[in-house]
Design a protein around this nucleic acid. Sequence first.
DNA 1: TTAATTGCAAACATTTTGCAGGTTC
DNA 2: GAACCTGCAAAATGTTTGCAATTAA
Lengths: 135, 135
Amino acid sequence: MPIGTDVDALLASHDISSTQQRRQIARILFARPQHLSAEQVLEQVNAEGYRVSKATVYNTLGLFSRKGLIREVVIDPSKVFYDSNTSPHHHYYNVSTGTLSDIDATDVVLAQLPTIPEATELEGIDVIVRLRNRD
Amino acid sequence: MPIGTDVDALLASHDISSTQQRRQIARILFARPQHLSAEQVLEQVNAEGYRVSKATVYNTLGLFSRKGLIREVVIDPSKVFYDSNTSPHHHYYNVSTGTLSDIDATDVVLAQLPTIPEATELEGIDVIVRLRNRD
DNA sequence: TTAATTGCAAACATTTTGCAGGTTC
DNA sequence: GAACCTGCAAAATGTTTGCAATTAA
């Protein structure tokens, strides 16, 4: 099964031209649902024997995120995570372990939303539930 | 009116010993409701003619935040904002301008919360409403 | 006076940039 | 072949650290 085809279609559907490096990075991001930092993406690409430069990883993640292929999750200022799950959902963040995990959108119900200020429109709502390990 | 007295009481009530630099930084943070980055705090302190080193600003903001005097708000990966409003509330983040503003807690009602995973306890919930300027 | 705090400068980590060379359509 | 993309190394952030000097209680 030509995995490359899927990735190409995915990139094309988001108006991203296909290159070796982008395919490689996309393959890793979409291999399974996960939250990866730029550094982890770089590691995994290189672990598979391919080589993509650091700058390209950053550029590509930024591009994917602008194009809506992945979603940036900002939780810890020291690192941005990229989430290949772009469907509406929220996150648990375990502050003891630094682990990020998904919360299904249906498990969080916002009964009431604040008014949206003049001249702006809603881009999205992030709910982050911070947890601590009980000791 | 001896402003210093208020700040001293504030620090003391949070179990923080009072020093010139800490008073100076607290004065700025509590002058009005605002969201400042470490760099902005440093600028404002220096603008008032006092001098506090960069390291002390970072140390002090971290200390204040650990002691519950201020709250860390992580939204923009490039910098942490410190919010002198520690009462429960959420944030608007205007992605077009990078501006952060408060949403009163009563304007956001979480009707349903996800279950808290085994062996962990809730540390807090952040709701970030991302806005975009309408063009 | 004795422990805590500060300033400095250097170290770090992460991300961005400039530009020469390579790739894609 | 023209526009776009990539790699490298250097630069730009933002934050932390080690340690000697200063300040607080």
